[in-house]
């Protein structure tokens, strides 16, 4: 008699599955309550990433357009992928008369970055920070190479590295 009990058992199991999907269908059809997807471009303005989200590496600037990078190049040395390049220049400090480094360009190759965060950890002056932006798509690789220090920015006065 297993022939008939098989049929009955099988049909029962199929109906159990249909009940579950059916439940979700009617709930969503009537109330949209269980919809788990986001309507992405629509919620672009309200979409807030978590504070710790690792979107990209940024060089923090304060309101006077000053950053904290003293061009020590620790980040460049520590990066496993070579995605950071620090270009610096020498100048003579008028007060002490010693040679000092000054940041010219802090170049960031986003296309090579794996977001491991080592550069941010090792930075002795806490100049680098995580940015939350994730809209990185572009038509051109070149656009992913960024200069992190803003034009005309200076190093914060009295920075000790």
């Amino acid at each position: 008699m297993s022939y008939f009990s098989d049929i009955i058992q099988g049909t029962k199991s199929l109906l159990t599955g249909m009940r579950i999907t059916g439940n979700y269908f009617f709930k969503n059809f009537l109330t949209r309550k269980d919809v788990i997807t986001q309507q992405y471009p629509d919620n672009k303005d309200t979409l807030k990433m978590f504070d710790r989200f690792r979107g990209e590496v940024t060089l923090a600037h304060n309101e006077n357009n000053e950053h904290r990078c003293d061009a020590c190049t620790t980040c460049e040395k520590t990066c496993p992928n070579g995605s950071l390049e620090v270009i610096w220049d020498k100048y003579k400090d008028p007060e002490t008369g010693r040679n000092k480094r000054v940041l010219v360009k802090h170049i960031y190759h986003l296309e090579m970055c794996t977001m491991c965060g080592l550069c941010i950890e090792v930075c002795p002056t806490n100049a680098l920070e995580w940015g939350q932006d994730f809209h990185h798509a572009s038509y051109d690789r070149g656009q992913l190479t960024k200069v992190l220090n803003k034009p005309g920015s200076k190093v914060v006065a009295g920075l000790k590295g």
């Binding site: 999907t21 979700y24 269908f25 969503n28 059809f29 949209r32 919809v35 788990i36 997807t37 309507q39």
Partner: peptide, 10 residues
Amino acid sequence: RVAGFFQLRL
């Protein structure tokens, strides 16, 4: 459309 509602989508 129906598939969307079954699958918790729109």
